[in-house]
Amino acid sequence: MTCSEFLQELTDYLDGIIDAPTRAELEEHLTWCRDCFVICNTTQMTIQIYRNSELYELPEDLRTRLRSAILTKCKHQEKAEEPASSPSESSSNSQT
């Protein structure tokens, strides 16, 4: 197996979705090819670092504000679709 063949299979190998014979070939390649060993290892670290990172977390206060805005719009939308049963209704925030 060449290095470029190894790289073609790298994604499936790292995801653990590869058949046993191919896995054996890849692992055999890793035993003697230091470059592919390093690439495999550092690519796995790359995935792990991004997975662990809290890049773009949603702060709790913003979360609450967004949720309340969404729910207001959803309730508004529901009302608009309902046939008008109580025409004089002006403000109700306790829809159940």
Binding site: Y56, E57, L58, L66, R67, A69, I70, K73, C74
Partner: peptide, 28 residues
């Protein structure tokens, strides 16, 4: 799912305000 939607939106738009709008628009 709001946190996940926000992360995805921020990654695609690369803009915080747009990502907030996307969260609202997507759930609505």
């Amino acid at each position: 799912y709001d946190r996940n939607v926000f992360r995805i939106a921020q990654h695609i738009t690369q803009n915080r305000e747009d990502a907030e709008d996307v969260v609202q628009d997507a759930f609505l």
